[in-house]
Design a protein around this nucleic acid. Structure first.
Lengths: 168, 168
DNA sequence: TTAAAAATATAATGATCGTTCTATCTAAAA
DNA sequence: TTTTAGATAGAACGATCATTATATTTTTAA
């Protein structure tokens, strides 16, 4: 699953065959099919594991700065999002990419990807942000993810932090 | 090229074969290869045509509101970006998707996609925004593009406009 | 030590991929 | 009307796709 996650993130889902996944993982093809029903099932499980990892970053922010005011809490959340982006190459959001590649091909993948994004907004609401505030913060996070692909992570982080300070 | 653009946008580049493109276009496969060297050449031309269309939206905003103050000009630009998004289904930015799918496969496609995004920032600078302002506005546009995939175009537009008003 | 379970390598399936070839046919130019 | 160019259908190419079958080997559990 780690190899699948990395290969899918860097080359896309339709751009990576399962032979390449098992080859990089050092595992037999039949072993993969013994653990996953299909490629799309593998994708669902990879996304599920990735969601857990992402929220562990956001939860770290909660432990650090939940007690302070909303403005600096938003900033700390933004810093956690940037830290998450820093864990791999800047190639966009894998959930959105899965949703885009399978938009008219696999409803389960689309639903899981959209569900993840909705979970982020719900998470922010659960921690003190109104719905519109949470949606705005989510917009800023997504913008930073995309902008990092163009100007690099550091420059994108700079502008994200400025915008958070302006808006919250 | 219109059919290729639509199919690639809705199903991804690796998810659409050239047989499907020519089938939808009602054209022979050899006719496509008579006009384009390869699939990746077709992609480059499709992206190039798309860039022209996108900037025609931004230029409309310039004609409408360049004389007003910077804040309301930013808002008018945002409205043009939303209008552009409204011309098709909410499936993200095709330039970023091309860059992501071909990140480690085709440098020309990656460069064209990144070049487009840099052109947007240059465009904003040419029309009165400082570099950091232009980058921040670009971040907001990208965020709205992604957010529209989750909450729909109208809701994403609402939050984009609010954020532009807060930040500019 | 033996029995059960899991992983392995290999090959086959049928489908599709991008690309090229050939040969026929239609449309434009001379 | 004849020449030229472009578009067509269809097959072929070798490669890869997701998936399944088979048979052997390794690991785990009893």
């Amino acid at each position: 699953m780690e190899c699948a996650d990395g290969l899918f993130y860097e080359n896309g889902f339709h751009g990576v065959g399962l032979k390449r996944v098992v080859s990089e993982a050092g595992v037999a093809l039949m072993t993969l099919y013994n653990h996953f029903d299909s490629k799309e099932d593998l994708i669902l499980e990879v996304l599920s594991a990735r969601e857990k990892r992402y929220f562990s970053f956001l939860n770290t922010a909660v432990e650090e700065g939940n007690t302070t005011d909303k403005s600096s809490f938003a900033l700390i959340l933004g810093q956690s999002h940037i830290k998450w982006l820093g864990t791999e190459s800047t190639n966009g959001c894998m959930f959105l990419r899965a949703k885009e590649e399978y938009a008219f091909e696999n409803e389960a993948i689309v639903n899981q990807a959209i569900g993840h994004k909705e979970s982020i907004i719900s998470f922010l609401q659960k921690h003190g942000f109104a719905q519109k505030e949470a949606t705005q913060l989510a917009l800023l996070f997504e913008g930073a993810t995309s902008l990092a692909e163009v100007v690099g992570l550091e420059a994108a982080a700079d502008e994200l932090y400025i915008l958070i300070k302006k808006a919250f």
